[in-house]
Design a protein around this nucleic acid. Structure first.
Length: 573
RNA sequence: CGGGGAGUGGCGCAGCGGCAGCGCACCUGGUUUGGGACCAGGGGGUCGGGGGUUCAAAUCCCCCCUCCCCGACCA
């Protein structure tokens, strides 16, 4: 590709609204253009990167035995009503009405894939089967940000597996999981498959593929010692040892007018002559399940609550319906009599006196003891893990890693077939059965930004050769004035092209500094510089973008040296 | 959805009652040519939209829209 023909212009300045490094660089280097909030076009350079990523994913999915198909982006809303996801995914669904009929623009395709294969997967003989697509998806993202990292329209490679039983599902899951690992390996970036929370998609076992990056909006817990990895939503910590019994004085009340937060209660009680910290408080969190049943969750006052699946925090209005719940002064004492279940984090087992609410306004109690002053119906992992918590597997300290979610794999099981009557097959014994599903997604259009985030430097982009828009950036310096430079450059351009190398040829009539800076900005992994200085002594310069070191090569050897450098980079991945 | 901020040429910005400007980019001619050159000339803007105040509005007032940041939310 000749840059005089390339539809792209490099910008000296990024748009003021571009925050993320990847966003700024992709715009400045001429890869993408913003059309609306969270909506981007791919210029030829950006599209080539996208295609490379798609190809890698396609090859690995194909190798895992999955079959590519294409599902509609435009879906009748009935499909979504059937699974109840018009409600559970209401906040992200893009709906539209066309001639009186209601549609959604698909944010994901579980419903659509089942509707599609219903008649084609009808017998145990048709199973197992895995299909996938590379498709544009839509989400009414509340706040698009960071360029390609969080958008309203995005491209995803999503796969769906169907199996006769759970064991089969596990095997299909493993096959796609392995395909994911191979695909991420080929992208040349560091990633971690971590245990994750299922979120609104439902299902059981699942993993997120996390790429550590400064811009990441997610965190996962990592144990450097044993390798335990889990998303912050799913991470657990080792429960502290529960010691034997200790003598705890009788529970006493203390007046705390207006102290409805942990911090204000701690301050007020300390000031009243009982020095304490938030770790001495028992935080009592009220939540309701999807049927509106209330439950209490107890965690130490210095920790954030991690509610189990299906529970959501009680909002203010609902609080008002339960006069025995005094906001800021809720405590577990006597709650079983109110028909509320009380769940506690493992750390609450430790016998000690807690300071907590008194279930009366403006009053706290001190020395509340588990088993004496309040009862717990069940223990669980109810706190959000923090840096330094003990690993649940080996006890060594965990660290939290900031990262971007680049892929997600789910074992859905029967979640969808249970809601969709057509999701059935005839089993070997002639009975009707539901198939076990898995679903898998890779954020294809997010990946150029993820790769850019972790590979770029202060000079610009720096692509791994597997996803770079071109393999070689041929820069001709002063070729309009030096016919010999022009001749050598043209010759190399065609001979490298003939050898199957993808070459971007900077044949623009610009100052050398501009062209060299642009080459670094655009980030093609191999640069081949042809200039009058070198040509005068029969050499050209070969440069790796990642180390920016130039190596002189005789003109006659330029082609073979370039080809072997490309091969070397390909082999490094 | 709550809080804050911004909309002036493709991008970055100045102007804040009196002729719409600057840098980059773009076009023409010339000079220049190894890490973001120079000279001369040129094209391009209903100043986000609507209404109002005023002799006069990019500028003041009201309404709306869009965008960005923080938070909430997050297949």
């Amino acid at each position: 590709m000749r840059m005089t023909r390339l539809v792209a212009k490099t910008l000296r300045e990024a748009p003021a609204d571009a925050e993320a490094v990847s966003h700024r660089l992709l715009v400045r280097a001429g890869y993408i253009r913003r059309i609306s909030s969270g909506v981007y076009s791919y210029l030829p350079l950006g599209f080539r990167v996208l295609r490379k990523i798609e190809s890698i994913v396609r090859e690995e999915f194909d190798a895992a035995g999955a079959q590519e198909l294409l599902l509609p982006a435009l879906q009748p809303i009935e499909l979504w009503v059937e699974t109840g996801r018009t409600k559970t995914m209401d906040d992200v669904l893009m709906r539209l009405e066309v001639r009186g009929a209601d549609f959604v623009l698909g944010p994901t395709h579980e419903e659509a894939v089942i509707a599609t294969v219903a008649q084609d997967i009808a017998s145990y003989r048709d199973l197992p089967a895995t299909v996938y697509q590379i498709q544009t998806k839509f989400r009414a993202e509340a706040r698009p940000r960071f360029g390609l990292l969080r958008t309203r329209e995005f491209i995803m490679a999503d796969a769906y597996s169907f199996d006769v039983d759970q064991e089969g599902m596990r095997a299909s899951y493993r096959a796609i999981f392995d395909a994911y690992c191979r695909a991420f390996d080929r992208l040349g970036i560091t990633y971690y498959p971590v245990e994750a929370d299922a979120g609104s998609i439902g299902g059981d076992v699942n993993h997120e593929f996390m790429v550590p990056a400064a811009i990441g909006e997610d965190h996962f817990a990592l144990c450097a010692s044993c390798g335990y990895k889990a998303n912050i939503e799913a991470a657990r910590r080792a429960a502290p040892e529960a010691e034997g019994s200790v003598a705890v004085p009788e529970m006493t009340e203390i007046s705390t007018p207006g102290a409805t937060t942990i911090d204000s209660a701690v301050a007020m009680i300390s000031k009243a002559g009982h020095p304490m910290t938030s770790a001495d408080m028992l935080k009592t969190f009220v939540a309701s399940d999807d049927q509106g049943r209330l439950a209490l969750f107890l965690v130490p006052g210095d920790r954030q609550v991690r509610l189990p699946h299906g529970y959501s925090p009680l909002d203010g209005d609902i609080f008002a319906e339960h006069p025995f719940l005094h906001r800021g002064y809720v405590a577990p004492m006597g709650m079983q009599a109110r028909k509320l279940k009380v769940f506690a984090d493992h750390s609450i087992k430790v016998p000690r006196g807690w300071t907590t609410g008194a279930n009366r306004p403006d009053t706290h109690v001190m020395n509340a003891l588990i088993g004496r002053d309040f009862e717990v119906d069940g223990f669980g992992d109810l706190v959000v893990v923090e840096d330094g918590d003990a690993c649940p597997q080996c006890g060594e300290p965990l660290s939290l890693v900031r990262s971007v979610e680049a892929g997600h794999t789910f074992q859905l099981g029967l979640t969808y077939p249970e809601k969709i009557p057509s999701a059935r097959f005839s089993a070997e014994d002639g009975s009707e059965a539901m198939y076990f599903m898995g679903c898998y997604g890779i954020g294809v259009s997010r990946l150029p930004a993820v790769v850019a985030e972790v590979t770029s430097d202060d000079q610009g982009l720096n692509w791994p050769i597997s996803v770079a828009p071109f393999q070689v950036h041929l820069v001709a310096i002063s070729h309009r004035r030096d016919p010999e430079v022009a001749r050598v450059a043209e010759e190399l351009y065609s001979s490298l092209g003939a050898a199957g190398i993808e070459v971007l040829f900077d044949d623009r009539d610009l100052a050398p500094g501009v062209k060299l800076n642009d080459a670094d900005l655009i980030g093609v992994p191999v640069q081949l510089l042809i200039g009058p200085k070198g040509i005068a002594s029969g050499v050209v310069e070969l440069k790796r973008r990642d180390d920016r070191i130039r190596r002189e090569v005789a003109v006659e050897e330029a082609q073979s040296a370039t080809i072997s450098l490309v091969a070397e980079l390909l082999a490094e991945l």
